[in-house]
């Protein structure tokens, strides 16, 4: 008996609509996050992540409404990240029905946000989301970036993840900007390095392209594996990924 490795699809949403090539033929509206969330819940996803890429803060209300409608039909955990800047933003998302909230750029700029949110709402609902890029100027060889990997935050990624965990983050969403989009597999070295320095759950993200990519991420130390496009384009199904993990002796639901 042990906790299952989680398989998590991630949806990018903009102003309440799913973007970046979701392609399901059997859905009436493939851009509707609520319908897609239900589809993934029924398909055996262990959790779901919404990444809100809405540029305008005027659209935050749209995001909140979308989270409410999703929480009404989804009975698995929902994490919402993207554009979370204040404790009030965290509060609004949790009240709308998110179970966990991802904090990324705003945490790098203002680390107290992690501490404040964790002490008010509990460690278990604060996810530190880090976009990591290899860099020879960072002491560990990995730096935390902003703007989707285009800008350096000036912080060493491993040092930042250690700090965020100490401040109360209950989970780390580890996005490899080097592996993202390559479909060449997760950055196993990065996963292993982070696993060595923190004992909070670790979600591996970036690089999944084929069935054989998932088990090595778990062996390297991931507690959950995230993917986006391979699921959205039906190149792989949640069930296939779980069967593959199971065949290598990894416990899944």
């Amino acid at each position: 008996m042990s906790v299952a490795i989680r398989v998590i699809p991630c949806l990018d949403v903009d102003a309440g609509r799913v973007v970046k090539g979701v392609n399901f033929e059997n859905l009436a509206d493939a851009g509707d996050p609520v319908e897609l969330a239900k589809h993934y819940g029924d398909s055996g996803a262990d959790e779901l992540i919404f990444l809100d890429i809405t540029a305008s803060s005027a659209n935050r209300e749209t995001t909140i409404e979308m989270v409410k409608r999703t929480a009404d039909v989804l009975f698995i955990p929902l994490t919402v990240g993207g554009g979370v800047r204040t404790v009030d933003d965290v509060d609004a998302l949790l009240r709308a029905g998110a179970d966990k909230v991802g904090i990324n750029t705003a945490g790098l700029a203002n680390p107290d946000l992690i501490s404040l949110a964790a002490s008010r709402f509990g460690d278990q609902c604060i996810v530190v989301s880090v976009d990591v890029r290899r860099s020879s100027s960072a002491p560990s060889g990995f730096e935390a970036t902003t703007h989707g990997g285009r800008k350096s935050s000036g912080k060493d990624a491993l040092e930042w993840i250690i700090e965020a965990a100490q401040r109360g983050a209950g989970e780390v969403l580890l996005n490899s900007m080097d592996a993202d989009g390559t479909k060449n597999g997760y950055d196993l070295e990065l996963i292993a390095r982070v696993r060595e320095v923190v004992d909070i759950p670790l979600i591996a993200s970036g690089g999944a392209g084929k069935l054989s990519d998932f088990a090595p991420a778990v062996s390297a130390g991931a507690n959950a594996v995230l993917a986006a496009s391979v699921f959205h384009f039906m190149e792989l199904s949640i069930a296939q990924v779980k069967d593959e993990l199971r065949s290598t002796g990894i416990e899944v639901r």
């Binding site: 209950g170 004992d199 959950a224």
Partner: peptide, 10 residues
Amino acid sequence: PVLPHMGWNN
């Protein structure tokens, strides 16, 4: 080894 205990268990 890992806390919180987060996920699906028997």
